[in-house]
């Protein structure tokens, strides 16, 4: 009899532990999604870091959808369909965001070309001066 009670108690704890683990795992997934989404009212924060009402609402929506078995990508797509690419903390690489991604490298290349060109010219001029 006593043994049976122990068994029941054990089962109870196992179930509670597994439920706690599920909850912790869900929370991890919610955070993982939230880190990738921009808080649109505070713009330079992700919704994981923000306590704005909208960020809390979007996190709640993400939690609900994940707990219903949607994948992280599906939740992110849901947000993009409604809020646009802007909701992504890391903008996607598309034609329209090309300038954003490649712009800095173009500026760097233009700057170094100009610098090299000027240095070369100065060198030539100094050489010419020495000859005189």
């Amino acid at each position: 009899m006593v043994k049976r009670w122990w068994l029941l108690l054990l089962l109870f704890f196992a179930a509670a532990a597994s439920a706690a683990q599920d909850a912790a795992q869900l929370e991890r997934r919610v955070n993982h999604v939230a880190e990738q989404l921009r808080c649109l009212v505070c713009q330079n924060q992700s919704i994981a870091d923000s306590h704005a009402q909208l960020a809390l609402d979007l996190k709640r929506e993400a939690r609900l959808q994940l707990s219903q078995g949607r994948s992280e990508q599906e939740v992110i797509d849901f947000m993009v369909q409604r809020y646009g690419d802007f909701v992504l903390y890391r903008p996607p690489f598309k034609a329209i965001t090309m300038v954003l991604w490649l712009g800095p490298f173009v500026v760097l290349a233009a700057g170094s070309t100009a610098l090299l060109y000027n240095l070369r010219r100065r060198e030539l001029r100094e050489d010419a001066l020495e000859e005189v």
């Binding site: 649109l40 009212v41 009402q53 909208l54 609402d57 979007l58 929506e61 409604r82 809020y83 646009g84």
Partner: peptide, 13 residues
């Protein structure tokens, strides 16, 4: 009341 329809419309402010 809970802003769910707002999310559907992409309301952010």
């Amino acid at each position: 009341g809970d802003g769910k329809a707002g999310i559907e419309f992409g309301v952010y402010g």
